[in-house]
Amino acid sequence: MAVNETLATVSNDLVYSAMAIYAGAFVAFSAELAFGARSSARPALHTEAAATASGAAVRTLSQATTQAPPKQSRFGRIGVALTVLAFALHLGAVVTRGLSVQRVPWGNMYEFSLTAGLAVTGVWLVLLWRGRDVRSLGLFVVGPVLLTLGLAVTVLYADAAELIPALKSTWLVIHVSAAVLCAGVFSVGATASLLYLMQSRWERTGGGGRLATLLPTSASLDRTAYRTNAFAFPLWTFAVVAGAIWAENAWGRYWGWDPKETWAFITWVVYACYLHARATAGWKGRRAAWIALAGFGCFLFNYFGVNIFLTGLHSYNGL
């Protein structure tokens, strides 16, 4: 099977175009932070009611306020528009890469990073579209995506090519697409947890300056973090189970403590800790957020660390 070199080149061009537009979005979000117009006084902003204003039209009687949703700054709107455009180009890059090799575009680290970055932006845009209070997270979503793409095109780049035999399986479509989506959802969850930790500190100390007024309340960030992580956890379970079924079909055992499997297990257990911590007195809030970040750290290590530094059966980095 021949590789369509023209499409592969188009894909590469689209990646660079997407990166340029992401960079524009990054600048716009930074400008919002520098000259933003979210000017309301902080105590008013930081009530529960304001946090839910965009999502729920109904206010409780006891908490009813007449506060309008915070006004979006022009820079913020430009940032979102540019991100949508970058997402479209990014999507085009992933699709053309897949078409050029006539298979799913996640057969090596370059392709996985490319697609996972798309998932991160996609998850953020979906949350935004569904009316969640995540718009001001834009800077912290676009930045890491840009970094991921930068790593992909420099360090991880691999030419379009046919798959090695070990990866020729329907389970590549199922197992890795679930993992890619998890990368997207876990990343947004970790961003929300990190910002929650910062915001909840600033709410106590009054620090954080303009960023603190721009970000949602800590309660809202905590909710976003919980929802994304609680959505990702079953998905991650599914990704691991699909991987186990594939392993059984390729190597004769569904679980063999290969480094990749081990770290998938550790990631799973740490996120299970997070979910339990949220239901345990004394562990809600900041401690739970730290656990979520630890879980994301394990997830990242399972990708970069295990693929590059450890030897195992999952040696598909294409480097």
Binding site: W257, T262, F265, I266, V269, A272, H276
Partner: peptide
């Protein structure tokens, strides 16, 4: 208790780490 379950989950994650390195 939930607190112990949480602690044991931590311990399990921690115990699996050396095998991952």
């Amino acid at each position: 208790s939930m607190r112990t379950a949480l602690f044991l989950l931590f311990l399990l994650a921690l115990a699996a780490v050396p095998g991952g390195i």
